[in-house]
Computed example of a mutant assay.
Amino acid sequence: MPTWAGAIHEASRKSIPAGIGSEGRFVLKTIPWILTGLAAFLAWTCLFTVDRTEFVYLTTLGAHASTFDGASESQAGLHLRWPWPIQDLRRVDRRLQVLELPGLEQLTRDIQRDAIDRTLTIDAYLLWRVADSEGVDRLLRAAGGLDEARQLLAQRLGGELGAACGRLQMDDLINSKEPERVRTEREKLRSGLLASLGQPALEQYGVEVVDIRLRRVSHPAQVRQAIFDRIISERERKAAEYQSMGEQESAKIRADADREIGQMRGKAEAEVVRLKGQSEAEADRIRNEAQMKDPSFYAFLRKLEEYQRVLGDGKSTLLLSTHRELFDALLDPPNPAPTKAATPLTPVGGSGK
């Protein structure tokens, strides 16, 4: 089956009269091709598609004609229009846009001096998108496009954020001791920014502000090192306080232990004295009982102890008179006290003889 190009070529060849020269034949052969290209160009300029992720803004001689929303089943797809310059179109992204707000130094309120002079660096971002078909018209008329709208929103967000921070204290936004307070104040700040930016942005630029978030809140770079040095100094001071408290506690524990040891030693020594007194009393009682049973023998034992003291310590020679009571025991030893005769044992089964 011949193609459409072959059919055009065959039709142009048959339509050329026999008396025309070679140059005329070339011109007549190219005319169908030119007409085909012109028809294709007109078809390309008169047809356009609407994607799911965009709005298409159509104008006729510069005036707004209609807006196609790709999210609509009836408006997405292929459409016809008059060729340029009669009708022109602009494509606007309908997806969620992210506006990154770089770190800006914002002033917060100092209640002690009743001034706004304490600086914080705040990084934030804003999520927004074109609201609807009417919003596209307002966007293009007021801002001119998405890039211009992004710049306007950044300026508005920076101004509103600065005004809101001026009503807050530094501790409301950055405070390690009260995290719940910081979380509450940041949520209030977010809600206030949404309320102050959402409706004006929709009415003026046709865009919907979806969300605003504070990404990071920190001290300015020029004072950050000084803050770190202060933190290190405070940590060292705290460590010294802990060390001092530990030494005091250690001294207290040692003192308590020494006191308890002294009390226990005193009780033990008192118990030793008590037991020694009891033992000595018991020894005296036993000694007295023994002395009462045989006083002469007890006196003899005492003299022997005295002999041991006098004659002991390695003495080889000692000259003393014998006419002393000390040596009576040697010259006239005492007679032992009579004892009862032992009863003889009777053999078992014996007669006793």
Rank of each mutant, 00 (worst) to 15 (best):
D229K: 00
I232K: 15
A251T: 06
H219M: 10
E247R: 00
R230Q: 04
R230E: 08
E247I: 00
E236R: 09
R224H: 15
R237G: 03
K238T: 11
Q248G: 00
R235I: 05
I227Y: 04
S244F: 02
K238L: 07
R237N: 10
A240Y: 07
I231P: 01
R230D: 06
Q222F: 15
P220Q: 02
K238I: 12
F228G: 09
M245R: 03
H219R: 10
A240C: 15
A240T: 08
Y242D: 06
Y242A: 11
Y242N: 12
E249S: 06
P220S: 03
S244C: 02
A239N: 15
Q222V: 13
Y242V: 11
E236D: 15
R224S: 05
E247M: 01
A239R: 14
E247G: 01
E236F: 15
E249D: 11
M245V: 02
I232Y: 11
D229L: 00
V223K: 10
V223R: 14
E241P: 05
A251Q: 11
I231S: 09
E241Q: 15
H219T: 12
E247Y: 01
R235C: 11
Y242P: 05
R230M: 07
E249T: 00
M245H: 06
E234T: 10
S233P: 05
A239V: 10
H219S: 13
E249H: 02
V223Y: 15
P220Y: 03
Q225A: 14
I231M: 09
K238P: 06
Q225W: 10
F228S: 04
A240P: 13
E234Y: 01
K238G: 10
S250I: 05
E234M: 08
F228V: 14
I231C: 07
I227Q: 03
Q248R: 02
A240M: 13
R230P: 02
H219Y: 09
A251D: 09
R235P: 01
F228D: 11
I227A: 04
E249F: 01
A221D: 07
D229R: 00
K238N: 09
E249Y: 02
A251W: 04
F228Q: 08
R230N: 12
R235Y: 09
Y242E: 13
R230I: 00
R237V: 04
A239S: 11
V223W: 10
S233V: 06
I227M: 06
Q225V: 12
V217W: 03
M245C: 03
Y242H: 15
R224F: 05
A251I: 06
D229M: 00
R237I: 03
Q243F: 03
A240G: 04
S233W: 12
R237S: 08
D229Q: 02
A240E: 14
E234N: 14
R224A: 09
R237W: 12
Q248A: 02
R235E: 07
F228I: 14
P220H: 08
H219W: 08
A226C: 02
Q243W: 14
E234R: 02
M245I: 04
I227D: 08
R224T: 03
A226S: 07
S218V: 08
K238D: 10
I231V: 04
F228C: 12
Q225R: 07
E234H: 04
